[in-house]
Amino acid sequence: MKEMLKLERWTASQNRKTVLKDIQLSVHQGEIFAFLGPAGAGKTILLKTIAGLHPIQRGRIWLNGMDITAQSAHRRNVVMVFQEARLFPHMTVAENVDYGLRFRKLPPDERKNMVHNALTWVGMAEMADRMPSGLSTDQQRRVSFARALVLQPDLLLLDEPLRDLEPWVRQDLRNLLKELLHKLGMTAILSTREREEAVQLADRIAILHRGRILQEGTARQLVDKPAEPDVARWMGSAVLIRGVWRKRVWETDVGSFPVAAFPRTFPEGAVVSGVIYPCDLQTAGWSQPIGERTLRLEGKWMYSTDTGREYQHHIQLDNGVRVSVSSRRPLERSENGRVALLVEADRIPLFADEKHLL
């Protein structure tokens, strides 16, 4: 696939503090790429540096094969959509969408047709003559999308574009964005702190934390082979367990498990952490036998919720961490409210000498 964007050893600062450290990244033409991470990770600054709205201290950037490192923002065919719609209050919906086209010296009829098409894409064509004050928040967001899409940029930057919207509105706009970006073949980079949003919208995801990329890849790659515990946490609300690797057993804060059950090994006495995804946990009978590569975790039953289709069981593991596990049947408990959960050993990524925790 053709490379649309390339960042090389990208470093940027804000208020004399380094917020991005040696960012290296390639994004392909027509790809939707997401930066996922907490507030303060550097996501917005990263998008602004790509757009040319924030200076960099070191690094180079190529867009569509051209070095644009020193190029000013208005000369880059890059459009950024911010967290707020930022519509001009004195302009109609159509005038807002037309604003950027005015600088391209296109014939009025051509601009009018492009504006109509863009508003049709986002379901706002019938409100072309409305003023922004007469629109709901999600309608304003739709207009901001149309204003960006009508310019047909080489690269579209979306800075948490669905933030602070109602859940059902976010879902509708996610579907709309995904459909439009693929339909138009547009290359886009999204920043978000919502895992579900990144997974649903993006072809690839980079976990950004404290100004550095922890890992990038498809959602399945990040879940199946996380480079470190923080990646697993962001990709699945993972439970972290800690322990010491002995010759025969891994002694953890939720029990001791035979090292022979795991597909990899560590030196004697190594401090080893493991990550368990709640979706890999299964409920079990208190006296149910287990296989050689199956681990048994115990905990205290807190409460269960019957959703009509399944039960959601809320359990506190022996290390104090709470997990939610679903099953089609009521949970079997011991007399004192103890429960057992099972997980296959090969579903637990292991890490030695963990250093970086959220």
Rank of each mutant, 00 (worst) to 15 (best):
S304R: 13
P263C: 00
R309A: 04
G291C: 04
L162C: 03
A340S: 13
G100K: 07
H90S: 09
L149M: 12
V27H: 01
D203S: 03
G59W: 05
A340L: 03
D224V: 09
G320C: 14
N117Q: 15
D22C: 10
G185Y: 01
T307L: 10
E292M: 11
V97G: 03
M235N: 04
M124Q: 14
V244F: 02
N64F: 01
V239I: 15
S327N: 07
H54D: 09
I348E: 07
V271P: 01
Q71Y: 01
A270F: 03
D203R: 02
R102W: 05
L180T: 07
S133A: 13
T18A: 08
Y99R: 03
A85P: 15
D22R: 05
L20F: 07
E95N: 02
P89H: 03
Q57V: 02
Y99W: 09
E335Y: 06
M91N: 02
A73E: 07
A202R: 08
L135E: 11
R210C: 09
A345G: 04
V239M: 11
E310C: 05
A206H: 03
S327F: 08
L331D: 11
V254Y: 05
L240Q: 15
P267Q: 11
Q152L: 05
I56F: 00
L155R: 00
G185R: 02
G308F: 08
A51G: 01
Q140Y: 08
K183M: 09
L341N: 12
P349F: 10
T69W: 04
Q221M: 01
V343D: 11
E160L: 12
S256G: 01
V223H: 03
K21F: 12
G299T: 10
T18C: 07
L162A: 03
A219F: 02
N175Y: 04
C279G: 04
A238K: 09
V325Y: 11
K17Q: 15
R86M: 11
P107W: 07
Q312D: 13
M235R: 03
L190H: 14
E179C: 05
A202Q: 08
D253I: 11
H74E: 12
T11C: 06
S136A: 14
H90Q: 10
Y303T: 08
A94M: 01
K6L: 13
V150R: 00
K6H: 14
K17Y: 08
I50G: 02
Y277K: 09
S287F: 07
V249D: 05
E354N: 15
P89A: 06
